[in-house]
Write a protein that binds this DNA or RNA. Sequence first.
DNA 1: AGTTTGCGACGGGTTACTTCA
DNA 2: ATTGAAGTAACCCGTCGCAAA
Length: 320
Amino acid sequence: MTVEKEDLGLSLSLSFPQNRTSSVLQLNLMPSSSSSPSAPFVTQTPSWIDNFPSLDRNTDACRGEVRSFLRGIDVNRLPSTAADGEEEAGVSSPISTVSSVSGKRSERDQGNGDDNENEMERSCSRGISDEEDGDAARKKLRLSKDQSAVLEESFKEHNTLNPKQKLALAKRLGLRPRQVEVWFQNRRARTKLKQTEVDCEFLKRCCENLTEENRRLQKEVQELRALKLSPQFYMQMTPPTTLTMCPSCERVAAPPPPSSSGPQSTPADRPRPHQMGHIHARPVPVNPVNLWAASGPSHTFTGRSMIPSLDRNSLVGPRA
DNA sequence: AGTTTGCGACGGGTTACTTCA
DNA sequence: ATTGAAGTAACCCGTCGCAAA
């Protein structure tokens, strides 16, 4: 059974878990003003894009697939032993973590088995400190699929690790703690990049919609101006100043009755339009923009707050 | 054979916290 | 008890370089 890399992670950026308290990772690449490096990164605040249900939301089916895949893995066993058999050519292992200094891995793995075993003893059984491998050239490895899957699974639970978790995971996977640490750092970076791409796409769509709306409104204004120049229409039009707003209660007030004397024509059981009392001396013209902003869309472009990714401090969540 | 892509690894910078004079 | 410098740890970011596609 193979685990596609899309299943393992980066598609997460498009998934929007409904249950925010679940243990499943919820991406938090965007805003979180509180950032403490020593606080465990346990809870995840959702991305602001979570508020846009119209965006495509993938299911978590891939996670289930990964979990079912993981059930078949004994993660406590050191990978890449002879029993593992390197079932897939080119898939590396903790052995190759050390042995992949140079040359092609497949050739090395098939080449000198004794050397590999020695390397494994040196690297896995006692571990390799960062100082020990510092003198060698930069080592390149590919984590095995099993290792990647376990790391992904762990990342879904918490995208940062405390030292204890890091050590446990490293021991479980036969990796150095530094490798686990680097993997998580890179994984966070990749997730953030993916989320940024999603956010950019969303903002692009917002921009397109607003441009279209602006175009439509401009056209409407032009039409209204043309109509206003028509005398017949103008005579029949109600002056816009009759639409007023009560400045205290901010309700739209009805125009004054044509005659101040005589009983109100509005029946008592019918809701009357709000009329300004005598206290309100001056009607306030209704500004449709203000009305829109006050009661309108739940997400308005208010600069920084609308584009949290531009705020560097808000990019990082609580740190471990 | 050359190019592109994915990703593990690293160095440098930042921030928060601790220790100590 | 307070304070500021030094040390440390954890993280992010940009980048490198290898291996696979």
